[in-house]
Simulated assay, not measured.
Amino acid sequence: MKVEQVLHMNGGVGKTSYANNSLLQRAMISMVKPIVGASIEELCCTLFPECLKVADLGCSSGPNTLLVVSDIIDSIRTTYHKLNRPPPSLQAFLNDLPGNDFNTVFRSLPGFYKKLDEEHEKKFGSCFIAGMPGSFYGRLFPNNSLHFVHSSYALHWINEV
C-alpha cells in the first residue's frame, strides 16, 4: 500500500482531531506570515493578474486550513490598496492527501466567506476555494496554472526525491 493512502490526520472536530491539536503548526504559520506577505506583495506588483491562483500544499483540516488563505487575502488587499488598484479575484486550491477530512474544510467555507465579506466590507473581490486531493509526489496542477504555492509542515514528507 502506498504511504499517501494510509497517512492522514485525525479528522472531525473531536478531542483527538487534528483541528484541536495543531497549535504548533499555527505558530509556524504566524512565524512565516511576513515572508508570505512580502512574496505576495512582490508577485502582485509585477504580474497584476485578474485572478491570482494559489495552492496550499498539505493544508490538512481545521482552523489552520483557511488561516493561510486569509493571510494571503490580507496581503493582496494591502498591496492593491497601496497601488490604488482593485484587488484581483483569488482562486485557492487546498491540497492534502485523499484521507484528509475535506468535508470539515468545506463545511467551514460559508462562515469563512461571510467573515471575509465583513472584514473587508465586500471590497476584496471574488474568492473561490477548491479542494485538490492527492499527493504532491506527482503532478497536481497543469503547467503554468499557479502564481503562488505555499506549504507549511508538509515538505518534511518529501523523502522520495
Rank of each mutant, 00 (worst) to 15 (best):
S22K: 09
N143Q: 12
F102R: 07
L116F: 07
P86C: 05
D71G: 14
S75N: 11
G125N: 03
F102L: 01
P34G: 07
T16M: 08
G12M: 06
L97W: 06
D101Y: 01
H156F: 12
G138T: 15
C127Q: 04
N20G: 12
F112G: 08
G58K: 02
F102I: 03
A38I: 05
G131H: 06
F141I: 05
A55H: 05
N21F: 08
E118T: 15
L67Q: 12
K15R: 13
S60G: 10
V6L: 14
V6S: 09
G138A: 13
P142E: 10
P87A: 13
K115D: 14
F106P: 00
D117I: 04
G58Q: 06
L24S: 14
H147A: 04
D96K: 09
G125H: 08
G14D: 15
L52Q: 04
E119W: 01
V13K: 14
G111Y: 09
K122N: 14
I29N: 08
V6A: 07
E41L: 02
P34D: 05
N144K: 15
T46G: 02
K123I: 01
N10C: 07
H120L: 10
Y137N: 12
L66N: 08
N84P: 00
D74P: 00
W157G: 02
K115W: 11
S75K: 11
E50C: 05
Q5F: 14
D74Q: 15
